[in-house]
């Protein structure tokens, strides 16, 4: 089903990916919580690369003709699931950011405190123009 050469390339590639992700977690660039799914997938791929026969077996158990079809199908489903989970995460994050911004706004309030003199000079003329426009 695949040549030994390709098998070795595959295994090396997967192991490199695994090390990369683990290293990023170690350096706190990735959160373990969100990278767990990637680690699981890579481990599964590693098993398949080492023992390609498992693929044929799983495919025939699921009733799929060729293992290649199964790879495409499962890969697509997996990608969709990850994107969906990300959408859920984005929704939650944006709700949190919104509340955070609102609380910051309340701390960052101006209740009629005097302004700096240089700003005052800059804005005075403009305010007068706006006010006289409205009075017309």
């Amino acid at each position: 089903m695949m040549t030994t050469r390709f098998q070795i390339i595959l295994i090396v590639g997967i192991v490199l990916m695994l090390l990369l992700i683990l290293n990023m977690i170690r350096k706190r660039k990735l959160e373990l919580k969100y990278s767990l799914e990637w680690l699981i997938v890579l481990v599964l791929l590693l098993i398949i690369a080492c023992v390609p026969e498992t693929l044929t077996k799983v495919a025939s158990t699921l009733g799929i003709y060729s293992p290649v079809n199964m790879i495409f199908f499962l890969g697509f489903v997996f990608a969709l699931i990850i994107i969906f989970v990300l959408t859920v995460t984005v929704s939650r994050l944006s709700a949190r950011i919104r509340r955070l911004a609102q609380i910051v706004a309340m701390l960052n309030s101006y209740m009629g405190e005097p302004i700096e003199d240089d700003l005052k000079e800059k804005i005075e003329k403009e305010v007068k123009e706006i006010v006289s426009d409205k009075l017309k």
Binding site: S109, Y110, K120, I123
Partner: peptide
């Protein structure tokens, strides 16, 4: 700036 010049009450969203 205009609100502050006028001394209005403002909450400033970041």
């Amino acid at each position: 700036d205009i609100c502050r010049y006028q001394g209005y009450n403002v909450l400033n969203l970041p």
